[in-house]
Design a protein around this nucleic acid. Sequence first.
DNA 1: TAGTGGTCTAGACCACGGT
DNA 2: CCGTGGTCTAGACCACTAG
Lengths: 237, 237
Amino acid sequence: MNKIKPKYRHIQNYLKEQIQQGNYKPGELLPSENDLCKRFSITRTTARKAMDGLINEGFIERIHGKGSRVKERRHTLGLLNVKGFSEAVGEGVKTVFLQNPQKAKWSNEIGLPVSENEKKTSCIYFERLRFVGETPVMLEKNWFSDTVLPGFEKSEFVDGSFFKTLSQRYLIEVVGSTQEIRAEYAHEKQGQLFGIIKGTPLLHIPIKFSTTTPKLNIYSELYCETSSYPVANSYFI
Amino acid sequence: MNKIKPKYRHIQNYLKEQIQQGNYKPGELLPSENDLCKRFSITRTTARKAMDGLINEGFIERIHGKGSRVKERRHTLGLLNVKGFSEAVGEGVKTVFLQNPQKAKWSNEIGLPVSENEKKTSCIYFERLRFVGETPVMLEKNWFSDTVLPGFEKSEFVDGSFFKTLSQRYLIEVVGSTQEIRAEYAHEKQGQLFGIIKGTPLLHIPIKFSTTTPKLNIYSELYCETSSYPVANSYFI
DNA sequence: TAGTGGTCTAGACCACGGT
DNA sequence: CCGTGGTCTAGACCACTAG
């Protein structure tokens, strides 16, 4: 019944963990493609597909004739690709829950259209404020259908990461995202949270994350105070 | 001496042109992968690699068991991936040059670091204001080294597109981009251009485009008025 | 020159969609 | 059922980097 993870995704996740755990540091080279082939008994096509994924996620870059190098985690936030906050940065990041996961209504604050099927279900909501050091940089609101994640409200997040929780506890992976980006005035309440005056420009990013389960999309509204920590994004073919 | 374009990129560009010219309309299916194999005498690996590129650029989506469908050109701007404005939208778009391409100094308005080699060269600058219908939505400032594009100032743009000009006149392709995104107040002059009051929130996006020529990067500063036309972005693995 | 990534071939089997 | 895309194998040759 459940979908089988393809080989390349196993390798991809394995390498990603190695990088996240610091076993391969920025600037270092990953094992060569041929190494991976031998180690995991796969062909180069599969090895490359795994590394393609890591490139898309911004973890590595290929250097022709040399190898695949782990990329610097920029001190700006490597956000805005697939995946959330905790995966992107690792250092002086702090997260405060303003609202723990609990049942709620589908809000009309959600910027991207919620699918009809999901509207019929009930919905789980949570809200977090993210800091770099002591500076609040991102307010994050999340909605998703409660039909495929039984017991979600009651359990803790794995490593504090929502997406890691999805992956490890429910075997659900994020496979894509659609987003819009706007510049807006901060509302009163947002201003208080960020410690800025009402009317300061804020980045507003509605996102819809798609997952390996068609029944589950994550709808997020992000508000970012970009004066010290701009949002960043890289893309290579 | 010159780099040879790989097969998959030829196919990719061919299909992209077909879509841009409206031979395949949004919602329609492209030829199947097997069709492409026969038509161009290639294997599926190559056909898929070509289509992978189109997916990354947001032109198509794959539907398992069905085919590859041309995606709707959203009436929001499909910008923010690789490639510029004219490639992304096709309809009621207008462009006004505020400053034609001409020699200039490397400005300190450029947000992302200019490489040392490029700093030593002289630089070409141009500035455009982009409209959707009669609404100005984006102010675009561009700098790049003049060493690899002889005669650039004197010639017209191909189809009004800077990137198409690079591709067709100089055989240079954009292969990636790095960008930051900030929300800022509009300055006086920007406010006048957009017909908004000073202090309205604007999206500010410094971008560095990488090309097939290591000597050429395009440094852009975009300012977007997002209240009617937010910037958009999709990503799928 | 040895080892790396970049491209490509010629197959194979599977999962999914629609008839 | 057939045709589609999704994954994978087992090779090959080329272009680039570095000792």
